Structure formats: C-alpha cells, structure tokens
Simulated scan of single mutants.
Amino acid sequence: MFNRQISAIKIVSLLALTASGMLPLVSAKAEDTTLERIERTNTFVIGFRSDKHPFSAITPTGDVEGYSIDLCHGIYESLKKDLDKPDLELKMIEVTADNRFDYIKDGTVDIVCSATSWTLEHQKKVSYSLLTYVTGAEMLVKDDSRIRSLKNLTGKKAGLIYGTLTADIMTKRIKRDNLDIELITYKYPQQGIQALENREIDAYIADRIILIGLLDEANAPNDLKLVNRFYSYDPYALMFARQSLDFKVHVDRYLANLYRSDKSLKLFNKWFSHMGIRSNENILRAMFKLQSIPE
C-alpha cells in the first residue's frame, strides 16, 4: 500500500509540474504554421492510430472512435468557433509508429490523437498538449500462470508492441538486469494478445490501459489476467508541431476548460468506467484537477 501511495504521489507531482509550466517549453523562434495552415486550407487534419482502443480505433463499420478522438473532435468544434469557420472541414488520416513524427513535421496532419507517450526525447521533435491520460507498463499472462514478476519470466518469452515507450523501457531494463527473457515485438497490438492466447508467448507487456482495451476484444478474456504491478510511468498527450505555440494555447485552453467541467468525467465514464478499479480513476481525477488551468 505504501509503495502505491508513493507512486501516486510521484505521478501527481509530475502532473503539478506540467500544469505549472515547469517542464521544458518548446522554442518560440520557429514559425508557427499550424493555425495559419488550418485557416488557409479550411481543413483540420487529425492523425489517428487504428489499433489503440480505447483511445483510437476503427470500428467494424469503418468509423474512427475513442477517448482521444473525442478530445480532438472537441478541439475541432472549438476551432470552428474561435476561427469563425463554421464550415471548417474535418479530415482523418491514419498514422503509424514509424511515420507519425514525419507527418507532423511536414504538415500532413495537424495533430495526432491516440495513445501517444510524452517523452522529453520526443519533445526535441514535436510538442505536446496537457496530459490526457496516465498509465504505465504492466504484464498480461494466462490465468493459470504463476508469473508475477520479470524474474519469473527467466527462460521464457514475452511480447512487446513495436514503437512504444514501454517496449523501449522494458528492453533496456531486461538488458540492464541481465534477465534471460526472449522478447518478441509485434507491430500490431492484437497480434500479441493472439500470441498469448495461443501460448506462443508467456507474457504480454504493454501499457496497462492498452492491455485492458485488448482484453475487451479478446476471444477468452477470462483466461487472461493482469499481474497488478506497474513497471513504468507513461503519460499520454496529444501531439503536434514543435513550433506551434499558438495552436498549443488553443488545444490546452480547450482541455483545461474540459477538465474544469463535468464533461471530463462524462468522457471518462464513456470510455473507462466499465473497467472498474483497473481504470485508475483516482489518478485521472487528480490529473483533471491539476490541469484545470484558469483563463
């Protein structure tokens, strides 16, 4: 219990630093072209990942939906109002782990709305909004498994999701601790869950919230279980061009207003309440509160 309290305190402290502006800011020297491009083209372009339920995913009917998608739809509506463009067009473009930074840099998309990790290394290339979710790496195993820690994976196989912060952190940690674990990387999250169900791997390591989302879609979710142990801290945010300070103000204003209202809890209930205690509701409530930046 004490360790959990310490972890929560660390997360809340980081959120406080974010909300107070004490984390490194992007440079104001480069030209901000995002808002200018949106006005000139009369189009707002959202980049999304198709396999990041419940943040962004394609439904069987071909629609794009998710928690992050709802956030960006809200930003789109606020842009229509603030730019006085009621006919502003909304365009959706699928991005991948490999091309998302290039698409932001060259202006193919204005914003990426998915389960995007905010890291200081990535901040050298792009900028981020206020935090949208807080999670961390966990393990999913078969229900009859006795695996409870990384050490229990010695001589076994573990799956990771390609191009994620969790994959990078866990690969370095396993190498640092000299653990004999065979790591198998999957390009698409669903491939890993299938491999675990088929016992091709012994554990699947990814962000807790992504694993829970995959459980929603698993063939036999009751045959799988989380080990209930975090191995990292992973903050999510919306991503856009590094120099887009004016656009960042617009995005952050929308999020701060949302976090000050009951709409944030309604959005939480829509996408996460069915997860029960696994949803980290208390941490999310703290995140909403700490980032309710006043006008």
Rank of each mutant, 00 (worst) to 15 (best):
G21H: 12
Y188Q: 07
L140N: 04
A167F: 01
I174K: 06
F288S: 00
V64I: 15
Y128D: 00
H250L: 12
I46H: 02
E36Q: 15
A206N: 12
E200H: 08
I205G: 08
A286E: 14
S27I: 00
H250K: 12
I209V: 08
R37A: 11
F55V: 10
F55L: 09
A195Y: 11
E65D: 12
I38F: 03
E200D: 08
H274N: 06
M1F: 14
I38M: 02
D102W: 09
I181A: 00
D207T: 14
Y67W: 06
N257H: 08
R242A: 04
L15E: 12
I9F: 10
T43P: 01
R229I: 03
V112D: 03
Y204T: 00
G136W: 13
M92H: 08
Q191D: 13
V249M: 04
Y204M: 00
H122F: 03
L25F: 02
I181Q: 03
L196E: 11
L153I: 00
I209M: 08
G192D: 06
A97N: 15
N152M: 09
I69Y: 07
P86C: 02
L265T: 05
R100T: 11
L255S: 02
K289M: 04
D180I: 03
N99H: 10
S20G: 05
A57E: 08
V12I: 09
S68W: 07
S68R: 10
K266C: 00
V112N: 05
Y259Q: 05
T164F: 04
T166Q: 04
L196M: 11
Y188I: 08
Q194P: 00
L79H: 08
R199W: 00
D202F: 05
D234Y: 06
G21Y: 11
R49N: 13
D246T: 11
W118Q: 11
S273A: 14
G276K: 12
A167R: 10
R40H: 14
M275H: 05
T33Y: 01
N42G: 06
M139Y: 12
T59D: 10
D84R: 08
D98Q: 13
F230M: 11
D252H: 06
K105A: 08
P221N: 02
N3H: 07
H53N: 11
N3I: 05
A97S: 15
E138V: 09
K151I: 14
R229E: 12
P189F: 01
Q123E: 06
L131N: 09
